[in-house]
Amino acid sequence: MTATTFLIGGDLRVRRLGFGAMRLPTEPGPEREASLAVARRAVELGVTLIDTAHLYGGGANEELLAEALHPYPDDLLITTKIGVARSASTGEWGLDGRPAVLRDQVEHALRRLRVERIELLQLHRIDPETPLADQLGTLRELQTEGKVGRVGLSEVTVTELEQARRIVDVVSVQNRYSLLDRAYEPVLEACEEAGIAFLPWRPIVAGESGAQAEVAAVAAETGATPTQVSLAWLLGRSPVVLPIPGTARIAHLEENVAAADLRLTPAQRDRLDRLDQPSEQA
């Protein structure tokens, strides 16, 4: 039977099917009110893992989640990401892993999320212009200072993961991965071997018509939707997989969460397994 929960870092229990907050509008008005309702509904449905980032509106997404959910339930984990910053001169977003920038973004995240410690902080991307030891060393220092509980990475290769683990204890990896996009399969396998949580972002993607037809066929057999089939496949792929599908609509949220109860037969999984398409890494 597929496990419904996972212990991140061996001690932080979450339900495996989480929620990605990236798509939630944050501008004042009816759309923001709808975003608040979606975030609250996610928690009502039992979601205990919500993913956000400094990049999402320059912290506006973090503020939205705090407005919607603070004071937080004891079992709710809101994980955020740092390491992407907006240039003061051009206004463009780019990788920035300099220690001072990382520290500043953590301080802002603590304030916006209204917490004293970020239980899981992920490096949004490794900055090639800054020594890896400086980037991860800063996160390790923030752990020592009690401002960060656990450290994760995003969009890394197997080699980068190995290098990072020599510097800091890595408890999660957030890479692009789905039924039809398995370019990071080796990273997932490395995470499974080490017991590291693997959070696939963009867990539901459109594929070529033949693949989608097969997904639709399995959906028809199970009485589910193609989206639910894709998420159920991910949950059955490995016990370390924690999908974080995002949406700005309550109906889609409820559809996604219900996928946790869908069980695919071995024959159905075998058919879906064969849909793997080569894909370049971002």
Rank of each mutant, 00 (worst) to 15 (best):
P71V: 08
P71T: 06
Y72L: 11
P73K: 12
D74C: 04
D74K: 01
D74A: 05
D75E: 11
L76Y: 03
L76R: 02
L76D: 03
L76M: 04
L77V: 12
I78D: 00
I78T: 04
I78L: 05
I78K: 01
T79E: 11
T79M: 10
T79V: 15
T80A: 14
T80V: 14
K81H: 14
K81D: 13
K81M: 13
I82A: 14
I82H: 02
I82Q: 01
I82E: 01
G83Y: 01
G83N: 06
G83S: 13
G83E: 03
V84C: 01
V84M: 13
A85Y: 15
A85Q: 15
A88V: 15
A88F: 15
A88I: 15
S89V: 08
T90K: 08
T90M: 12
T90W: 09
G91C: 08
E92G: 11
D96G: 13
D96Y: 13
D96A: 12
D96E: 13
R98Y: 05
R98W: 05
P99M: 11
P99Y: 11
A100S: 13
V101I: 14
V101L: 06
L102A: 03
L102S: 03
L102G: 00
L102E: 00
L102Q: 00
L102T: 01
L102C: 04
R103M: 12
D104N: 05
D104W: 07
V106H: 05
V106P: 00
E107W: 13
H108K: 09
H108Y: 06
H108M: 10
A109I: 06
A109Q: 00
L110D: 02
L110H: 03
R111Y: 07
R111G: 08
R111W: 08
R111T: 09
R112N: 06
R112H: 04
R114A: 09
R114F: 06
R114P: 02
E116T: 07
R117H: 10
I118C: 04
E119K: 12
E119T: 07
L120G: 04
L120Y: 10
L121W: 02
Q122N: 06
L123H: 03
H124E: 04
H124K: 10
R125I: 13
R125G: 03
I126G: 00
D127N: 06
P128F: 10
E129Y: 08
E129M: 10
T130R: 07
P131F: 04
L132P: 05
D134R: 15
Q135D: 15
Q135M: 15
L136T: 03
L136M: 13
L136C: 10
G137L: 00
G137Q: 03
T138Y: 08
T138G: 11
T138N: 09
T138P: 12
L139W: 01
L139C: 07
L139I: 06
R140D: 14
R140L: 14
E141P: 14
E141D: 15
L142G: 02
L142V: 06
L142C: 06
L142W: 00
L142M: 09
L142E: 03
Q143W: 07
Q143G: 10
Q143H: 07
Q143T: 08
T144K: 13
G146C: 09
K147A: 14
K147G: 12
K147M: 15
G149E: 04
R150T: 05
R150L: 14
V151K: 01
V151P: 00
V151Q: 03
V151W: 01
G152P: 02
G152D: 06
G152N: 09
L153M: 14
S154M: 14
E155W: 02
E155L: 03
V156Y: 01
V156T: 08
